[in-house]
Design a protein around this nucleic acid. Structure first.
Length: 464
RNA sequence: GGCUCUAUCGUCUAUCGGCUAGGACACAUCCUUCUCAAGGAUGGAAGGCGGGUUCGACUCCCGCUAGAGUCACCA
């Protein structure tokens, strides 16, 4: 049996973390079993469905690399549902029901994009399913056997009219026609399952396997929603989270491989994923851990790939700086890659941050050149810096200026005179900062010329 | 409220009756170090409560408690 899973978002809001995680589990399971996942937009609610959300969801899935070759829209399948509706009506498994009162519904859902008060303009005739009022027992891959009495459901409504099927009906027909073998969805789907099984039995569809996965929760342990902050996938993309890192983290929310392994490539995830390892209880979303995982992925990335990404995040304030050059950026990359968790930090380093001094003469007060401990006088410090210049100039022209050669040239002198007295002013001269990478790394990034001129500047300041 | 589900460090989790309860994130301290970051080491930190079953329960059963979800002519 070929595995077919489905991801059926309703385009009533942007792709959020919870849905992305549900999609991921469907994707991983299908890929793992050599099957496929289909994407189905459940847009039968014309008032709430928006094209822009559909695009957001589609792009989000693309970004995460979960492209689906088969994409359906329920709004385009009205005739299909109609066919099944007519069949049910003919077999008297469903019937038209005249409704006397118009029901009014007030949305209380925080997540809803709607204005919160909606009045449904209700037609007087609807289609109801004849409910045999039995106890439905189904097996859930995560939770085992679940039994729910459908008596109080009554003869529930399956369509507003012959051409306006409701969610449950459309879902069951689609899952049947698209031959879905596994329904992997959020645990709130548990309550939907009995009535969907009732519809299945009425139309003569086989029962797929059910797998209800726990929620992704907010800090307060309630289902993750807008009030918890950044919940849409796009926000994480903007932040500079890597798609594979995001997938990696999402997979670990509610699933684990049974080993202590935490960093996975997409391929490893697919290979090791199994539904039986899914957790029963909800998992709180932690941005901290996501950042850490992103960092681990960043570490494993090649410098060339990192450079491509970096270029997208370098702000204008930096590229318009007098000493800006791509070469210098390239030399900065190894250190930068070690320091950041998310790509957005690169932009944040722009204004007066740790990137601006790389591409412009540092501005600082002379006092900063004085080491905190063992304050030596300015004359001694400027002598040290002069010597440093001298030593760097003497580096054999056949050798390039890099952190190793500079360190080699200066180390003995610094050791002899006190590393703090030599290295601190040297580092401040190059960075203008109290905190920065070490002076050897800085001189490699800046290059010989800029290094020497910054040292010279510092000497003038000390003598001034 | 009815119904359904869940319950191990602050968080993500391991344990499928033998536990000195393991790992990761975060946190703290120390080391390394001119500063920062990184790295290394160490540490604090958990089985909701009460009954059973058992030689032995975090693990199995029951009750309670707590939390979540769900009860539409939304999906």
């Amino acid at each position: 049996m070929k595995i077919v899973t489905r991801f059926p978002p309703s385009p009533t809001g942007p792709l959020h973390i919870g849905s992305a995680r549900t999609a991921l589990f469907n994707y991983l399971f299908a890929q793992n079993g050599g099957g496929k996942m289909i994407l189905r937009f459940e847009d039968t609610d014309k008032t709430r469905s928006k094209k822009e959300f559909e695009e957001d969801i589609f792009e989000g899935l693309n970004w995460l690399g979960m492209n689906c070759s088969e994409v359906f829209h329920q709004s385009e399948r009205i005739l299909v549902y109609r066919k099944y509706l007519e069949k049910l009506l003919a077999e008297e498994k469903a019937y038209y029901s005249d409704e006397s009162k118009v029901t009014e519904f007030k949305s209380e859902n925080d997540d809803s994009e709607d204005p919160s008060e909606t009045l449904i303009d209700a037609p007087l005739r609807v289609i109801r399913l004849k409910n045999l009022k039995k106890v439905i027992i189904f097996n859930d891959i995560v939770r085992g056997e679940i039994s729910i009495d459908t008596t109080e459901l009554g003869d529930f409504i399956i369509a507003r009219s012959i051409e306006e099927p409701l969610y449950h009906f459309a879902v069951v027909v689609d899952d049947f026609e698209m031959e879905a073998t596994h329904i992997i969805r959020g645990e709130d789907g548990i309550y939907n399952t009995p009535r969907q099984i009732l519809i299945q039995e009425a139309i003569g569809a086989p029962r797929p396997s059910y797998c209800h996965i726990p929620f992704v929760l907010g800090e307060d342990k309630s289902k993750l929603s807008k009030r918890h902050g950044a919940v849409s996938v796009n926000e994480y993309k903007m932040m500079g989270i890597l798609p594979d890192a995001f997938l990696n983290y999402l997979a670990l929310l509610g699933w684990n491989p049974g080993t202590t392994k935490e960093i996975f490539t997409r391929e490893e995830l697919i290979k090791e994923f199994s539904l039986s390892k899914i957790q029963k209880s909800g998992a709180v979303f932690s941005i901290e851990k996501l950042r850490w995982i992103n960092r681990e992925h960043l570490k494993k990335m090649s410098l060339a790939d990192f450079k491509k990404l970096t270029l997208n995040y370098i702000p204008k304030e930096i590229t318009s700086l007098p000493e800006w050059s791509e070469d210098r950026l390239t030399r900065l990359l190894p250190d930068l890659k070690e320091r950041i968790y998310v790509l957005k930090e690169i932009s944040d380093l722009g204004n007066g941050g740790d990137l601006s001094y790389i591409f412009d003469k540092p501005q600082y007060k002379t006092e900063l050149l004085l080491p905190k401990k063992n304050k030596s006088n300015k004359n001694i410090l400027s002598t040290h810096l002069e010597k440093v210049i001298n030593l760097i100039e003497k580096i054999d022209a056949s050798k390039t200026i890099n952190k190793d050669t500079v360190k080699e040239a200066i180390w003995d002198y610094a050791n002899e005179k006190g590393r703090g007295d030599v290295l601190w002013p040297m580092r401040v001269a190059l960075s203008g900062k109290e905190k920065s990478p070490d002076p050897f790394t800085l001189s490699e990034i800046l290059g010989k010329e800029a290094t020497l001129s910054r040292l010279q500047n510092a000497i003038s300041l000390l003598k001034g």
